[in-house]
């Protein structure tokens, strides 16, 4: 009995299914390794002594945490005097250190993201819930802007900002976010707003709620997952964006992390361990954010993709 059962397993469909499952798992594991290994290698190099950077095997780590301090202050560590207050100032506010880049990036990313969430949601709300002449035409235009390569508008927009005297400031990176928030985000949020029953608007209207009240107090709270998705998209985009800061920012005290990192290449191009430390520092917040928000993030992309 036992034998035949065992034999039955080896010849049965079950065995085939198990085999297939094992094979799939092996492929998945191998592929995920290729996804993760580069990132691990980066972390490993960032902790190596300079003479060991390219010594093999690649996973040998020296745990040299001072690399991070050196990468953090690319123009030299702050000079300490012994006075606590002065030292604290020197450590935290040294210009052209990654403190500054990080702070700059947080400001730019934060303000842009607020703008993107606000303006794309209010635009999406109008398209999803309100009736007005030319609605369909305007929405087709919104979708059409998805097709316009950013490079077409790059030069005239630069000229516009140059005439406003806004170059070498963060305004060109922040202001556009408040005016529209991107066709992709509008489209994504509109899909979410469409899914909310209209009875809610009606009930609120009867209770004397204004249109803005409906948007602010009823729709937005219901769309928090979608808003988080848009926010995370915007944060990732702004955090990683190189082209716009490259065009608009010249003063290195206003550099974002992407620019600072790009600059770092010419500064420490031969110090690979420091470069990898800097790269790790730049990537880390995004990775943390991604793991924290991945549920919404992946769901949000999935929704857009399906409705496309």
């Amino acid at each position: 009995m036992e034998r035949s059962e065992a034999f039955g397993f080896w010849a049965s469909k079950k065995r085939l299914a198990a085999l297939r499952k094992g094979l799939a798992l092996a492929v998945i594991l191998a592929l995920s390794l290729t996804m993760v290994v580069p990132l691990l290698w980066m972390a490993a190099i960032s902790l190596k002594a300079p003479e060991n950077v390219f010594k093999l095997p690649p996973w040998r780590v020296d745990w040299r945490w001072s690399n991070y301090v050196d990468a953090w202050y690319p123009y030299g560590r702050p000079v300490l005097t012994g006075n606590l207050w002065d030292d604290l100032k020197a450590v935290l506010f040294q210009k052209e250190s990654f403190w500054w880049y990080t702070w700059n990036t947080v400001v730019v990313t934060g303000l842009s993201t607020l703008g993107v969430v606000f303006s794309s949601s209010i635009t999406a709300f109008a398209f999803a819930r309100l009736k007005f002449p030319l609605r369909n035409t305007l929405f087709v235009i919104v979708l059409g802007t998805l097709m316009v390569p950013a490079q077409v508008t790059m030069v005239p927009t630069y000229i516009l900002f140059a005439h406003l005297g806004w170059t070498n400031s963060w305004l060109p990176l922040i202001v556009p976010a408040w005016l529209g928030g991107g066709a992709f985000n509008i489209f994504l949020l509109r899909q979410f707003f469409m899914g909310i029953p209209f009875d809610l608007d009606e009930a609120a209207k009867i209770d004397g709620c204004s249109t803005f009240g409906i948007f602010w107090r009823i729709m937005l709270p219901l769309c928090v997952p979608a808003l988080i998705t848009v926010a995370v998209f915007s944060i990732v985009y702004n955090w990683n964006d190189l082209l716009n800061p490259l065009i608009y920012i010249q003063d290195s005290s206003k550099f974002t992390l992407a620019l600072g990192l790009n600059q770092f290449q010419s500064l420490a191009g031969d110090k690979t361990n420091l470069m990898m430390a800097a790269a790790t520092v730049v990537l880390l917040p995004i990775l943390v954010l991604f793991f924290a928000g991945q549920k919404y993030f992946i769901q949000g992309i999935a929704t857009t993709g399906l409705k496309g």
Partner: peptide, 9 residues
């Protein structure tokens, strides 16, 4: 991670 940092890597 698409950006300058991963280009470095």
């Amino acid at each position: 991670t698409a950006g300058v940092a991963s280009a470095f890597l």
